[in-house]
Design a binder for these strands. Structure first.
Lengths: 199, 199
DNA sequence: CAAATAAATGAATAAATATTCATTTAAAAA
DNA sequence: TTTTTAAATGAATATTTATTCATTTATTTG
């Protein structure tokens, strides 16, 4: 009997290899779409045998759900880097907004993957609920903004989707036209957003 | 020899049945994602035999490419309904904006399908180029807006993606939370957009 | 070091899915 | 009505892809 049986219900895994598998999957999804990936291709791209994949993940569904959760987690972790509640609201908002943009630029493949997962049959209800909770801090941010009259008194969802939607779409189209997004572009884009949502 | 051999290179098809197939595909993609559809399921949902599907479409790739093109065409056709170049700019812009929103509400399944296709391995370069040209009128619209100093002097892509991205994301999230979008919501959302992009 | 245990392999199998085609049914022409 | 042609069918086949497992390789323990 393994000592982990009591301490940890999950079998310990080589973190490096897990990361390799995740990276390979993201790469392939960006290149071929969620409907274009196969387990053997993932294994090949991760430089492991197909069988090894099944040591790390029970099946394809599990792999995709775990990767989705990991992507959400890592994205939210970045969103609030450098943010402090005591900052003037606009300054804090700009930091979060910039982090949102930067995440999508730096980890485009994660953004693409999460996008694709939205309508996929792979993501389970459990994963959906779990990852929904993770973005709660964003809702809190816009709520604060409304409370101090910095933002328009509108539905949270509306403010957030307008903020996020514009970034998403711009980064997506820019990547496809091989356009590099400059600091100045980012500033202009922020102003578009801010002028729209400020009270 | 069939008279169409010279007049039209494409075999004439029962329009009604083609529409049935398209509708079935859109329904299934909305429900199960692009990676979750099979040819036999499409046939079943369209109430025809699998073999019949292959009379209408050479293969799965062709079916999806033709449907994508059809979705783009029908969307752009709607965008400029009621718009006239002689209108005051903001009025015309509002009409197009509203049509964009309304299309995504009324034909959500088409929006989902097109979204999914973006990163899919099915859509060929030819289709991408073809459909890219179709959205040219939207670029012209924002260009006009800039020319008369109604819109900020920013990159076309930036203005357009910010306009479209917000709508996309809002409709998407609303549908998933089973939220009905009211006329008032639409007005608020328009103001978010307009306040952001106006000069 | 040898023995025992764990991890990795990838060819083989099972399951799912695209595509075909011999046959049937419907429509048009004679 | 009979003959000819076109359209539709869906079971059968081919292909692709998920998953398994007997075997090999690496690691840990005594």
């Amino acid at each position: 009997m393994n000592i982990y049986s009591f301490i940890c219900p999950v079998k310990p895994r080589d973190q490096h290899k897990t990361a390799q598998i995740f990276a390979a999957t993201l790469l392939l999804v960006r290149e071929n779409g969620l409907s274009g990936i196969t387990m053997s291709e993932i294994a090949k791209a991760a430089k492991i045998a197909t069988g090894t994949l099944y040591i790390y993940f029970e099946n394809k569904e599990t792999l995709i759900n775990e990767l989705f959760t990991e992507c959400r987690k890592s994205s939210v972790a970045i969103y609030f880097e450098g943010y402090h509640a005591e900052m003037p609201f606009k300054e804090g908002f700009r930091i979060v907004w910039n982090n949102l943009l930067q995440f999508r630029i730096d980890h485009f493949e994660k953004a693409v993957f999460m996008d694709q997962c939205y309508h996929s049959p792979f993501i389970t209800e459990t994963t959906k609920e779990l990852t929904k909770k993770m973005i709660h801090p964003l809702f809190k941010l816009v709520e604060t903004g409304k409370a101090i009259k910095a933002l328009k008194e509108l539905d949270n969802l509306m403010l957030l989707t307008y903020m996020v939607g514009g970034i998403n779409e711009y980064v997506k189209r820019s990547k496809y036209s091989a356009k590099k997004i400059t600091k100045q572009d980012a500033m202009h884009l922020f102003n578009l957003c801010w002028d729209g949502i400020k009270a």
